[in-house]
Amino acid sequence: MEVALPSSTRGVVLIAQLHRPALRALAYAKAARHSTLEAVGVQIEREPAAKLQQDWGRIDSGVPLVLLDSPYRDLVGPVMEYVTTIHRSNPREVVVVYVPEYIVGRWWERFLHNRSTTKLRQQLLGLKGVVVAAVPWHLESAREDAVTEEVPEPHEELP
């Protein structure tokens, strides 16, 4: 059976703040060897966005950061618009959106985490040519072996 393969893949990593789940999503996105990879942040408040820009420059990952302006403090709208724009300019490309997802241990933590990303995921899956990749991060309550994270060296190399 002849199936027309997509011409290339494009990775989009959703970054809110530069913490370990975000870095893990970035690492997985790099490992998938997309033809184009970029990181997307949504500017809801000025200070966290400025901090994200500074931290991004400091880690120097080689991946460009795109900051989307969200004047009405919306997370889903700007991301949807951006992904739709990408698809419109490259119709035969597949866009893989990497979204960190927190795996929770206790029942009530389900209502605290993943609220906005669930909505985002559902809306993104409605778009054409978009794949949503949920990069898991197990919270402490969900970790089987409660091993405390070691403090990394100041000059630790990031992937």
Binding site: H19, E47, P48, K51, W137, P152, E153, P154
Partner: peptide
Amino acid sequence: MPRYGPTCGFTSTT
């Protein structure tokens, strides 16, 4: 904030 550990040596807790 939920602890993800310090990322590469700079404190990122707002």
